[in-house]
Design a protein around this nucleic acid. Structure first.
Lengths: 216, 216
DNA sequence: TCGGCAGAAATGTGATCACATTCGCCGTAT
DNA sequence: ATACGGCGAATGTGATCACATTTCTGCCGA
């Protein structure tokens, strides 16, 4: 019966705070694959009871961000190579379409903003900041896709990002070479030129990129 | 503290029964758009308490099968035309890819099974059985896509079906002409011929089909 | 006749509890 | 030294409750 401490600012429900917090942590790769999560642990961490923690976890399991064992234990997923390839193919499918739809609406202000984000990415890479890199990279893609005016597609793309989150982080350690995102420049060039086939190819390449390393 | 009646056969958890039951009802179009659902009502219907009912509902909301108002009330979604077009485009994207991946693995037994399902569809259409039609139609597509060996993609496709469920039912009433699925025959022909471009076109046409009527 | 307002019913939310199951750890026997 | 068995801690599950909020109903007044 512990009293509700924060009398004001409960505009957002408890389970939503847990959900959003966990979701961004997973998507940005802050949690490594296979990491276990417990209801009581999460409840303590977010200062809520088990009930909202359970709702948040169930939702993330439904979205594929977490896996649940037969006994109900949940952890971040350890993806097989087949699954990773499949998710990369999904990214390619959906994001190429999103980019294509965004192209006619991409004016200069957007391109400049993308360039700014891209510089930020280069910084994170130089600093070996894996989480910052993943986060900024997703910002780049999301900023572009928002112009597509296709919320359902964007939601699907984000769900795929979510499923790949922990793996992307683990992958980051393997590709040692501090390579700035080469294909982002191609994306920007295609956007400026209004070159749709070029844009499709650039996005597909960017999305498929690092994942190829893994299957080797 | 009501005693657990069914002592045996609780191999499946309570929230899962509610989830699965609701999910198929929604996907098959048994619930019309805008229909409200309550936790206590569902709990009573499935003979469980509010807790598992809430988990099932949260999961379905996360998957886009239900919409939640600001006050927390849930109901089946009433989709805008834009949203419907977007979901149809997603179906086209994902299902064309799934069909393409299934093509090399589609042997005669599968094609015969698809033909059987297709006959079943024609029956449902003749009987004006909307739910049966939708259900059998999804069976047709799922049977084909299962051969693609791409579980993540199939899950995405099913999520889209789920979001379209109530709308498909409402749509069924509008297209009066009891048309059997014309494009399914094209799909079968392309499968037999191993004609990949033809298959892609046939699937895209089938998926986009009736949705065009709405936007008019 | 219509609009709004007050009270009642209904609903979602979150906390807590009891219980069954599972997991981990340690001791013992071979 | 290792494998097996059992005991205790930890965990998920589902029920129930109290409470705030929303929604509905019906009545009263203009």
């Amino acid at each position: 019966m512990m009293a509700q401490i924060r009398s004001s600012e409960h505009t957002t429900s408890a389970h939503d705070r847990v959900y959003r917090g966990l979701r961004t942590r997973i998507m940005h790769g802050e949690i490594l694959p296979g990491h276990p999560l417990t209801l009581r642990g999460l409840g303590q961490e977010y200062e809520v009871s088990m009930t909202p923690a359970r709702e948040a976890i169930r939702r993330l399991v439904a979205e594929g961000a977490l896996t649940m064992s037969a006994s109900g234990r949940v952890s971040t997923p350890e993806l097989t190579n087949d699954r990773i390839e499949e998710l990369a193919a999904l990214r390619a499918l959906i994001e190429v379409e999103l980019a294509s739809r965004a192209l006619p609406r991409a004016h200069m202000a957007l391109i400049e903003r993308l360039q700014t984000i891209n510089n930020s990415i280069a910084e994170r890479v130089a600093q070996r900041d894996a989480v910052g890199y993943i986060s900024a990279n997703l910002d780049f893609h999301r900023a572009l896709y928002l112009r597509a005016q296709a919320p359902a597609m964007l939601a699907m793309a984000e769900t795929v990002w979510l499923q790949l989150g922990p793996t992307m982080r683990a992958l980051y350690g393997r590709l040692r070479q501090a390579e700035p995102p080469q294909f982002h420049r191609l994306i920007l060039a295609a956007l400026k030129a209004g070159d749709e086939p070029g844009l499709r190819l650039a996005v597909r390449s960017d999305v498929t990129q690092g994942l190829r390393h893994l299957t080797a």
